[in-house]
Structure formats: C-alpha cells, structure tokens
Amino acid sequence: MTQPLLKVRGLTKHFAVRQGATGAKSAVRAVDGLDFDVHAGETLGLVGESGCGKTTTGRMLVRLLEPTAGSIEFQGRDITKLGRRAMRPLRQDLQIIFQDPYSSLNPRHTVGKIVAMPLEVNGVNPPGGVKARVQELLELVGLNPEHYNRFPHEFSGGQRQRIGIARALALRPKLIVADEPVSALDVSIQAQVVNLLRELQRELDLAFVFIAHDLAIVRHFSRRVAVMYLGKVVEIGDRADIYERPRHPYTKALLSAVPDVAAFGEPRQRIRLTGDVPTPLNPPSGCRFRTRCWKAQDVCATEEPPLLVREGSGQEVACHFPEPVGVGAEHVSEVAA
C-alpha cells in the first residue's frame, strides 16, 4: 500500500474549562485519541451526532485548533509542531470548506477579493494574474465569472457555498476538509453542491475529509467512513461494510434512526436509543457508548474496547460484543430499553 496523504495518530483535544462556583479546572475531552489515514484522491467520511468531536477534528487537521496530543502527518511530515512560517507551504495543500455560507464569507469583501484571499496571503502570483485565476475558479464552481465584483449578500445560499469552495480551491490543495458543507442548504441545492464536489474530486484528484451528521450524504460521497461517538472512532471501514454490515451497536442504531424516503412503506424494526449523548466533560468509563447500549456488560464499564478488525468483516470496530455478521439493521429484533 502506498504512503497515505494524511496519517492521524492518537489525535486528542481537551478544552480546559472552569466548573461550578469553585472554578475547579476540568477538561472537555472533545477528541480523545483518533487514528485514521486518508489516501490521495479518496474521501473519508466522518459521521456522528453533535458533541462527537467531528468538527473539532476537522479544525485540528487544518491547524485552526492546536491538538493536545497526537500527530497529524501530512505527506510524511508531522504538521502539529510546525510554526506558521514552516506551515505555509503545507497550508496550500490543506484547505477547509465551512458549514455556514453566510458567516464564512466576509460581507465587506467582493467575491473577487474573497476568492483571491489565499493567493494574496501566500503571495502567490498565478500566471495570467490573480483576476484571471479567480475568474477561472468561479467558472470551475459553476458561477458567472462576471460576478467578480459583487458582494456576498447578492448571492443565494448555494451560490455562496460555491464561492467558499472556489476559495478553498484557489491554492490547488491536495486535501480539503469539508465541515458540513451542505447541511445549511435547501434540499434541492444540497444535491447541486454534492455533485459539484464529486466532480471537482474527479477532475482535480482531491482527497476529502467529509464531515457531516447526515448519514445518507456521507454514504453518497465517501468510500471510507468513520463513525464517531463522544470523541472516539467507534467504527471505521469501507462504505459497504459500515452501511450494509455495521458491527458496532451505535452504528447500527444510528443507521436505523435515519428517516429514509426509500424505506417508505417497508415494515422495519427500529433500534431506539434512550436518552441523550453524555457530556464529554465526564465521559463514561470503559466504552463510552455503554450508557445507551442494550448489550452493555460489566466489562464495558471497566475496559475500553480497542479499535480492531474483527473476524468476519473488513472494518475496524471498537466493541466488546460486536454485532454478528450478516444481520442487517432492518432485521434485528426490537431492542428498545
């Protein structure tokens, strides 16, 4: 196997907070030891519910947040220890697309200025000039290059998201972290943007870390998928394994909770999880999912399950009692608490 483009090992982020009247210091364990690889031109989907640490992970990958521990190797170089100057050439290869098409564009800058910002900041002078490059980028993302001098408020949500994508592409990156790139858009516009990203990936050989809470969109966009829960990866593997043969109970519950139009009319048993996700301030001991898991045993509270490939399927699962192979979510018996 070739060297991965991005190699993440033991990535951890703890936020220090003061709690209660005494102001005692404690840590929010937002991300707690992640391992994953992303190869050139491939997409890794990161899914999970709010508070699972997927957004924090994305922010760390592009060095918007400093990791507490762990390493992020990009093209064989650990970028967590690099200073701003040394980071510069790598920034060009590593870009991010944001969720909110409204707050991600500076309202006082023209579209031309917004898209040219990464070029300006890095002192890149493309052949043919900045303006020509910006117009080329606007065309690439399906916008009218004549709109160079317009302001963000003159565009719809979907068009604004395209401007954000053009900005991320300005430096010809190798990897883009897409943080919920379509969740703020209307349904009919989501498909436009997803198709655009797929097209760009094919044309420009981009690798993506695609962060989303929508399992169907992640499935559509990513060949490999990591499911996160409370700062940990609970299951990671090929799309087919994760979606057709999930082995972690959480993945299974998550999949069965998705209201899917295609499943309309099919009688199926749903796994209903009880309660909410616990706070990352004080995550459960052992397996973090055990408080909502119907299979939890004593061992789950004392021993943290390692993320391993289990017999019978290709993906890595962090569970003491993985689901048997060959039983789909639809056919599992009712297991509500």
Binding site: V187, S188, I189, Q190, A191, Q192, V194, N195, R198, L215, A216, I217, R219, H220, R239, Y243, L255, V258, D260, V261, A262, A263
Partner: peptide, 17 residues
C-alpha cells in the same frame, strides 16, 4: 431525486433541481 438514500447504488449521481 435530489436526496441521497441509505439504499441503492451510492455511486449514482444525484439529480438536483
């Protein structure tokens, strides 16, 4: 046609409006 599904071929292009 523009919403992806958990079933069917994930490689099929979505048909946006």
């Amino acid at each position: 046609a523009s919403i992806p599904s958990l079933h069917g071929d994930p490689e099929v292009e979505l048909k946006p409006i």
